[in-house]
């Protein structure tokens, strides 16, 4: 087991190095840089000497990769000194910029997951138990619709619906608050802001989990021990909830864990719709400003979370099933 974990940890290294190189080169292939965006972006004349000075102060005049003191060593070297550098746009430390938004993104990810689980598990079970009936078809159509409906459009529709219904019922239109308040400070205000994007993303994200629950349940329900339980005369409810569900949940938990990892960084479009100041929005902004330093750290954060989640899931599987360890 110990050997397996070490092996998997070592396998993470080439993936992370590859991701770092890929992101680095992709960003450097963009014509222009943050200095030009900042100084010439307004359409006014920018002094080339001033741009050069700015590039020099940010280290953008250094060679790209080859050499000891390059832009790439600046980027990767930061990981060994635990210094992620400063945003090229605001000049503040990147850890500060990320920390400011991380809470919101994390809370959104958790809430969306809760919504997804609350939808996926009951629907998946019903769909499997009533296989090939109209209930099954309805659930499957509902879950496929979840993948099909763009979450940003669902977001616009939710906002629109809120406006129309509050207008009709309360007499004046109501919109979710725009500024983020910590849930500890004002839980009600916090919830009234974040519940809507959480529903929009949670529904989408429940689709895969519903299908996974359904297929896992179908497999388990055909097992001998379920037949034995039925033959014993156990109540169907007990069989499903205690005997079948527990064994079907493993792949479902995996899918949920992996999607959770993606949610933290992958909320790009939803945050745009609800005007939330999270990591996704920060990413879009930093790409727009050509803020290389911030963009590459954000991407690496998402990649790291994803790779690490995958590792934890694999190790968990190997712990449960010794055959995986030796293959």
């Amino acid at each position: 087991m110990y050997k397996y974990v070490v092996k998997r940890l070592l396998m993470m290294i080439p993936t992370l190095i590859g991701a770092a190189v890929l992101v680095f080169l992709l960003l450097r292939a963009i014509p222009g840089d943050v200095c030009e965006v900042r100084l010439a972006g307004t359409g006014l004349y920018a002094d080339p000497a001033e741009i050069e000075l700015c590039q020099k102060s940010l280290g953008l005049d250094k060679p790209l990769i080859l050499g000891l003191d390059t832009q790439f060593t600046d980027f990767v070297g930061g990981y060994f000194t635990f210094d992620l550098g400063e945003s090229m746009w605001t000049g503040k430390p990147i850890t500060y910029e990320i920390g400011l938004r991380f809470k919101l993104s994390l809370q959104m990810a958790i809430m969306a997951t809760v919504v997804a689980v609350a939808i996926a598990i009951p629907l998946g079970i019903i769909s499997a138990v009533k296989q090939d009936t109209w209930i099954d078809y309805a659930v499957r159509a509902f879950s496929i619709a979840g993948i099909a409906i763009p979450s940003f459009w669902l977001g616009i529709m939710i906002i629109l619906g809120l406006l129309i219904f509050t207008q009709a019922w309360l007499g004046e239109p109501w919109m979710p608050p725009i500024d983020y308040v910590s849930p500890l400070e004002d839980p009600w205000r916090n919830l009234s802001q974040l519940i809507w994007p959480a529903v929009a993303t949670g529904y989408r994200y429940s689709a895969v989990a519903t299908r996974m629950t359904r297929s896992a349940m179908l497999e388990v329900l055909r097992e001998d021990y379920v037949r034995t339980a039925r033959a014993k005369g156990l109540m169907e409810k007990v069989i499903i909830n205690h005997h079948a569900l527990k064994n079907a949940l493993l792949p479902v938990v995996t899918i949920i864990a992996i999607e959770f990892a993606f949610l933290i960084g992958g909320l790009v479009v939803t945050e745009q719709v609800f005007n939330l100041n999270g990591l996704g929005k920060l990413f879009v902004e930093s790409v727009g400003n050509q803020d290389f330093a911030l963009t590459q750290q954000l991407v690496m954060l998402v990649v790291l979370v994803f790779v690490f989640t995958n590792l934890v899931v694999d190790v968990f599987y190997a712990w449960l099933d010794p055959r995986i360890r030796y293959s």
Partner: peptide, 14 residues
């Protein structure tokens, strides 16, 4: 593995 480690939308955006 490297390409799969990126969320689809982030890779496409980049």
């Amino acid at each position: 593995d490297v390409f799969m480690a990126f969320p689809l939308i982030i890779l496409a955006l980049a």
